[in-house]
């Protein structure tokens, strides 16, 4: 299958230059490889079947991605994709369930679902388009905006510290926690493939600077770095320390944590 087969005829309406387009390309590449190669193997007997792939999305700029993907899709309400993802996976465990969400979508509106899906280790993959701002509503602070963020609803600066999303996921029981940078298409593709291949709840934070309402491209460009391949992925404490490292100086990318645990859906049918 060609990558173009995954595209619809819909005109892309993200801002020209928005890193969301890079995330879309990364995903199409990831899937194109996984449906054509024998290497991807979740159940150890077959590759990813395109008819079994379902892309969920929430509401926010990220959510437009459903219209650009010629695959099964479910565009949920704002913040509510995660329970729907678990529902679909429970109903048909043969499905490969991925979700696109934003930091506003899943760290504000639907944060309870995020925490509980990680807790129950639902076998779904969640890709967070992390732009640290509410963009589709034209620029307000959100759960991941830095304190002091000046948006339309906080003209004098936001009053709250942001979540550390990766730390939150590690604490909640996610069995795959990673971060990537939208500008690094190959890196994002690799992480997405690893997340989809992982059996259990995969959380991928994709740093996606909003070029219109919170342009952090320069900030991140100089700070992101990939952690070494030798990083021990099964050590929760080490993972927590690593994701805590997100400082003014450097922002680590890579897979911080990956362990195998029974999934919710496996337990359901046991």
């Amino acid at each position: 299958m060609q990558q173009s087969d995954l595209a619809t005829k819909e005109k892309i309406t993200w801002c020209p230059g928005c890193p969301n387009s890079q995330i879309l390309v990364s995903f199409r590449q990831a899937v194109t490889e996984m449906i054509s190669e024998d290497s991807f193997d979740k159940t150890q007997d077959k590759k990813l079947k395109i008819e079994n792939l379902v892309a969920f999305a929430g509401i926010g700029c990220h959510g437009k991605i459903s219209d650009y993907l010629n695959i099964n899709s479910f565009t949920s309400l704002h913040g509510r994709l995660i329970p729907a993802m678990t529902g679909a996976k429970c109903a048909n465990p043969a499905l490969t369930v991925v979700g696109f969400s934003g930091d506003g979508d899943s760290h504000n509106e639907g944060v309870e679902h995020l925490v509980h899906a990680a807790k129950r280790n639902s076998d779904v993959s969640l890709f967070i388009h992390d732009n640290r701002v509410f963009a589709l509503t034209t620029g307000q602070f959100d759960a991941l905006s830095p304190k002091g963020f000046k948006g339309k609803s906080t003209p004098f600066g936001s009053l709250e510290e942001p979540f550390n999303p990766l730390l939150l996921m590690l604490a909640s029981g996610a069995t795959f926690v990673a971060r990537t940078y939208a500008g690094d298409i190959a890196g994002t593709k690799r992480i997405m493939q690893a997340a989809i291949a992982h059996k259990g709840f995969s959380y991928v934070d994709i740093i996606q600077p909003c070029i219109t309402f919170f342009d952090t491209r320069d900030y991140f460009k100089d700070r992101v770095y990939w952690i070494g391949e030798d990083f021990a992925k099964d050590n929760l404490k080490a993972a927590m320390e690593k994701v805590y490292e997100n400082t003014e100086e450097k922002v680590p990318l890579g897979i911080f944590y990956k362990v195998d645990k029974p999934t919710f859906e496996e337990e359901l049918y046991k």
């Binding site: 379902v54 969920f56 479910f74 949920s76 309400l77 509510r80 994709l81 329970p83 729907a84 993802m85 678990t86 529902g87 679909a88 996976k89 429970c90 109903a91 048909n92 499905l95 309870e112 679902h113 509980h116």
Partner: peptide, 14 residues
Amino acid sequence: IAVINMALGISYAG
């Protein structure tokens, strides 16, 4: 809220 959204995911999957 999770109840009904989970149900809609189930319904979608048939």
